[in-house]
Amino acid sequence: MGSFGALGYSFSQGIKNIRRNKLFSIASVATMGACIFLFGILYFLLVNVQYMMENAESNVGVSVFFREGITNDEIVNIGEEIQNIKGVTSVTYMSPEDTWEYYKSTYLNEELAATFGSDNPLADSMSYSVYFDDVSDQPEAVEQIKKLSGVRKVNDSNDIVATLTKINRALSIGTVIIVALLLSIATFLISTTISTGVSIRREEISIMHLIGAADYFIRGPFIVEGVLIGFLGACIPLSILYAVYYKVVALVVSKFSGLFITMQFVDIDEVFLFVTPISMLMGLGIGILGSSITLSRQLKLIRSFN
């Protein structure tokens, strides 16, 4: 029959095993699917929060306002001093007009902005926008800026960053715990499925063993069974996740873009470039691992009873 024959035999018998053992196979695929689906959802949240954090780090800088009656020379001096503070990547002067335009485009919709006409409610609000490479440098820098002569007020974005960091950490821990728990359940179920399959084919395996079937020939169908369960358990949730992500992002962007203009999502293809191989690895890995461990135990048992 040769090795291709053995492979064909393993596949046909592996599929037969799944059919014979439908209930357990479905339960295994469902658990594996639930596990990978949850992993996907948590990963989407994680990656998007991180993405928003990166945006916050690069887009949400510190605004430095000046005391009344400050001269242009003093403003230039303050700018130079800020530029020398550790972690500062850029210092941009914002005139009252620039500030008002930015505010309008970021926080107000067109209708509301139009009600102000040519008035600028931020006429005395010239400022510096200070940006950092690493947001963790911000608190110390803010303290130094506050001490500069001529500075009236510093608006920092520490709260936003701190909140996003907390969410990110909670999500990371949650993802690890939930995925580990679900992976354990999935491994257990696959192991039970393979055990049941081996029990059903106990006599057949025993005879194969006595006739002189090679070890890989006996194990092949069960490994294929585990691989197929793992593969289906990864493919099904991946398809659902693709549709869900696509629709949810489209919905959020279309419904809430006016409210959360700074909310941006990672591109779907970019997300799936990571999620797909990881999910496949999880599915196939657990399928192979679960079936291999169980097989060794079960086959040893069968041999001892021959």
């Binding site: 029959m1 024959g5 035999y9 006599e203 025993s206 005879i207 194969m208 002189g212 020939f217």
Partner: peptide, 23 residues
């Protein structure tokens, strides 16, 4: 120790299949 779900031919052929005899 015959396999109940296989007929006579399949039971005998089984011994050849598992040692990967040419089909």
């Amino acid at each position: 120790r015959l396999l109940p779900d296989r007929n006579v031919y399949e039971n005998v052929a089984f011994a050849q299949e598992v040692i990967e005899a040419p089909k």
